[in-house]
């Protein structure tokens, strides 16, 4: 797809082009926003703010990387700002360093659908949820996460370890339940 032309038209203020760009990326961007928040309404608020930023900063996009990746970074940053600014998140956001324990080596088979997996991530405590998303999905290093959130690198590591451990536990439990249901069915 010729994004250059689309971006050019959006910059001219062409409403059709803006709507096309939105429709093209809204679902994938909403997936990002959904993982960082706890409710659909919040995710939509983040998406809305994120798209406003995208359109207002489109002139800064240099066509060097993928447009989707550029938009995704904006969405992630918007989500982080949103979490800090909203009381009900900021009160839950805690990045205290916990006792570092080795990252679980277990690699459970993920039998879940993407939506179910995203819902599990959203059930993590807010601090863990953010770090888990940033490291496991977005691929940021703990050093980068530390800079982004203003926390120590070690804190990011320990929070991630905790989040991973919880996630693995939930997934394994769910796998077991599925197995039990299968046996019960037989």
């Amino acid at each position: 797809m010729d994004y250059k032309n689309l971006v050019r038209n959006c910059l001219k203020g062409n409403a059709e082009a803006q709507k096309y760009l939105y429709n093209h990326f809204a679902a994938s961007m909403f997936g990002v926003c959904y993982r960082y928040t706890k409710s659909v309404t919040d995710a939509e608020d983040v998406l809305q703010e994120g798209f406003i930023k995208v359109f207002n900063n489109l002139h800064r996009y240099r066509h060097e990387g993928e447009l989707q990746a550029w938009m995704r970074r904006i969405m992630v940053n918007t989500a982080l700002t949103y979490l800090k600014q909203n009381k009900h998140y900021s009160s839950e956001l805690s990045y205290e360093e916990i006792n570092l324990h080795p990252v679980s080596s277990e690699n459970p088979v993920i039998t879940l659908q993407a939506k179910e997996l995203a819902d599990l991530i959203r059930q993590l405590p807010t601090g863990c949820q953010t770090i888990f998303n940033l490291h496991a999905v977005e691929g940021y290093t703990h050093v980068e996460i530390g800079e982004m959130l203003g926390i120590h690198e070690g804190t990011s590591r320990s929070q991630y370890a905790r989040a991973r451990s919880i996630m693995v536990g939930w997934i394994e439990k769910r796998n077991e339940n599925i197995k039990q249901r299968r046996y019960a069915g037989k």
Binding site: A26, A27, F30, Y34, E44, A114, K115, V137
Partner: peptide, 9 residues
């Protein structure tokens, strides 16, 4: 899975 995760708003 999360990269491919799409959800219409």
């Amino acid at each position: 899975m999360m990269d491919d995760f799409h959800l219409p708003p």
